[in-house]
Structure formats: C-alpha cells, structure tokens
Amino acid sequence: MAFHEIRFSPRLSFASTGGIERRTEIVTLVNGFEERNTPWAQARRRWDAGLGVRSLDDLDQVLRFYEARRGPLHGFRWKDWLDHRSCAPSAEPGAQDQAIGTGDGTAAAFQLVKDYGGSPPLLRPIAKPVAGTVRLAVAGAELDPAEFTVDHASGIVTLDAPPAPGAAVTAGFAFDVPVRFGADSLEVNLAAFEAGEIPSIPILEIRV
C-alpha cells in the first residue's frame, strides 16, 4: 500500500457527514463504580461522502478517484471542514497559533501539532499540512518562509538555524487528514440515485 498526496474534492467533502470516533473500554465493578480506559492515544475520524454527490458527473468523479486509489488500498488527503486549521475555521492561521517545541540550541526539526487542551493537553500530530499555508515564529518573531522547509508528507518543519535554548517555536497552518476509502465496494443503483437516494461512500482516517 502507499499514500497518494492528492486531495479528495473539497466541494464533495463539504457536504459529508461524520466526525470523531474514540474507543473507550468500560468495566462496571460490583460496587457500581466504573473503570474506564482507552487503547487509543488519538481519536479516529470517519465520514460518509455520499451526501456530497448530487449528479452523475459527481458520481463519476468519485468512482474515478476510487479506482485510482484501488479502493481502500491507498490513502489520500481529505479536508475536514470542521477542523482543518491551527485556528478557528473562520480565522486565518497565524504564526503563533500552536506551540510545537522549545529551542535547545541544537534541534532544528519540529513536528507540527495541534493542541486540543485538557490536562495533560491532547496534542494531535499534523502529518499533512497544506502547501503554502505553514507559518513559523521563534520567540514571537515570525520567520520568513525562506528560513525553513516543510515536509508536506510528514508535517515536520526544519529551520535553517536551530532556535536558541528556551526559545518558543510556534506555528500556524492549514491541514488535511490522511484517510482511505472504508469499503471494498461502492454500490450505486442509478434508478434510485436519480430518484434522490444517496450512495454510501465511507471514508476512514488512517495513521501515517
């Protein structure tokens, strides 16, 4: 399997349904108290892209994309319209949106992350930043894009010079979610489709 650095149509993903999935193991004790645990450090997201398909041309576009990915075999990029920026969805990413590290005078590479809060904070690694959107700052001073490089396949940013010890490294960015198709088949009844029945096109987040 491989990952294809190509994005599913944002126009079609906009109307999708879905959201966050977590796995929680709950054991009820004899005294009525519960013990709760999760084997997942990170949530997993899933969607159904069928609602975005409004015409036969849309359906053809999805089928071609599905075939090019060999169904669930290869991953691809997906825009989660609810959560696709280092800031609020209505704002523009700023260089101080997210803390991604602290300088030690030696390290120059940092993984992009998004902080969802909590104690301890839940940090989501961002592996698929959108090209041209990453902004960086060191100790509050924004860097020129020529002063760092971005690996858009891993979300690792590398500064030309290591930040000084104690200097806060922050970032702002837009990002995609790595996903795959969630089924080995896509079934569509054209008569039902033309009558308004929406096909099911499951999309599942993957780890990369």
Rank of each mutant, 00 (worst) to 15 (best):
A167V: 07
R64F: 07
F175I: 05
A167K: 00
A183D: 03
A146F: 04
F65Q: 11
I26K: 08
F110R: 09
G117I: 06
Y116K: 05
T24D: 15
F173H: 05
N189W: 12
G75E: 09
G52S: 07
A183H: 00
H152C: 11
A49L: 00
A146C: 13
I156N: 11
T133D: 09
P162V: 05
D184W: 06
A49K: 00
I6C: 12
A167G: 02
V138I: 08
L112E: 02
M1Q: 05
V130S: 07
K114N: 00
K128H: 08
T106W: 15
P199G: 08
H4M: 14
D97L: 06
R180P: 05
E67L: 13
G155P: 00
R23K: 15
F65P: 09
Y116Q: 06
A137G: 06
S90P: 11
A41Q: 15
T102C: 01
I20T: 10
G71Q: 03
V113M: 13
I203L: 04
R70C: 11
L59C: 05
F193H: 10
F8H: 04
R36E: 14
P93F: 10
Q61S: 15
A174W: 15
V113P: 03
E194G: 11
R69I: 02
L29A: 09
P178V: 09
P202D: 05
A41V: 14
A161G: 11
A49W: 00
R70A: 07
L190N: 09
D104Q: 07
P202R: 03
E67M: 12
L159N: 02
